[in-house]
Design a binder for these strands. Structure first.
Length: 283
DNA sequence: AAAGCACCCTGTACGC
DNA sequence: TGCGTACAGGGTGCTT
């Protein structure tokens, strides 16, 4: 069972970590699973992070961004990027580790605490970059930002020939949506995930825009979605409450909250996809 | 251009 | 009860 961190979960983590990390200095780092590090070897990674002060914690799409004060090289926009993928977790702990088996990378902070990266499935990635903006330049717009408008979504949708679900999952088109919130947004908008994106009417694009923003906003307010004990946790160990708000995700066979028809599961873009065939028509 | 698939991984669910 | 196997899922890269 997995519920993967998407925009609301990463946002919750960023907010929690911000309070704990800003102003701290990384005294030392240790890489227990080298493939968790992207773009350079673990030795260089550790060497470049040692002594660096954390100036901020943010989020871009599903990436967590830990901003660093300029080091000896003087890079202005250096930062540590973390993508949690399937099972990654970042925790601030007073003990060195609570789970050595799944500990992949850890940072010792100047206050004696530890920032620990746990990742059961080893898909998560840490990347140290000298230019945060450039490193994330391929990501599409932030769906909750003011800059993201209905017109932007309309352009995205009209320019592509593929399925609407594939488009929403494409991080270069729109940043931060994953399998859960894509299905939830499409259900709220009454749009079948297999519809060609270019076939959406103006009204449907508007409904989709509202649905995406609302579902993400509500999920942020609920601090994300946690589906079982094993799954996503906030940095303080709290679980997300949005699971109680899910209308379709993992609800195959259960009645649609709008019309009562059983929710169906199909596969779209190699992903389990949940929908109501009555409220989300293909024809 | 878009779709499909293998790959990266391991905990869990399921069938026998 | 225990064992083997299929499956899930984000992103990347390759093929169709």
């Amino acid at each position: 069972m997995t519920s993967v961190p998407e925009l609301p979960e990463v946002e919750t983590i960023a907010r929690g970590l911000r309070a704990l990390l800003v102003g701290r200095t990384i005294a030392n780092a240790e890489v227990l699973w080298p493939r968790s590090i992207e773009g350079m070897g673990p030795a260089e990674f550790v060497q470049r992070l040692r002594g660096r002060r954390i100036t901020g914690v943010g989020r871009r799409g599903k990436w967590l961004v830990i901003h660093l004060a300029p080091g000896q090289a003087g890079e202005e926009r250096e930062g540590l990027l973390v993508h949690l993928r399937m099972s990654g977790r970042l925790l601030v702990e007073s003990e060195p580790s609570h789970d050595l088996l799944h500990l992949r990378v850890r940072f010792q902070l100047d206050d004696g605490r530890w920032l620990s990266f746990y990742d059961t499935r080893k898909f998560g990635r840490l990347r140290l970059t000298s230019d945060v903006t450039a490193a994330l330049a391929d990501l599409g717009p932030e769906p909750l930002s003011e800059e993201f408008t209905i017109e932007q979504l309309r352009d995205l949708v009209r320019r592509k020939r593929g399925r609407i679900k594939s488009l929403l999952l494409d991080q270069r088109a729109l940043a931060g949506l994953g399998n859960i919130y894509t299905d939830e947004a499409l259900w709220r908008a009454g749009i079948h995930p297999l519809r060609s994106s270019a076939s959406l009417t103006g009204v449907e694009v508007e409904r989709l825009y509202v649905a995406i923003r609302q579902v993400l906003q509500e999920a942020v307010l609920h601090e994300g979605t946690t589906l079982s004990d094993q799954e996503y946790r906030g940095p303080d160990g709290r679980s997300g409450a949005f699971s109680t708000q899910l209308a379709v995700y993992r609800r195959a066979g259960q009645p649609c909250l709008r019309c009562g028809h059983p929710i169906e599961r199909v596969v779209v873009s190699q992903r389990g996809t949940y929908l109501c065939p009555v409220c989300q028509r293909l024809d």
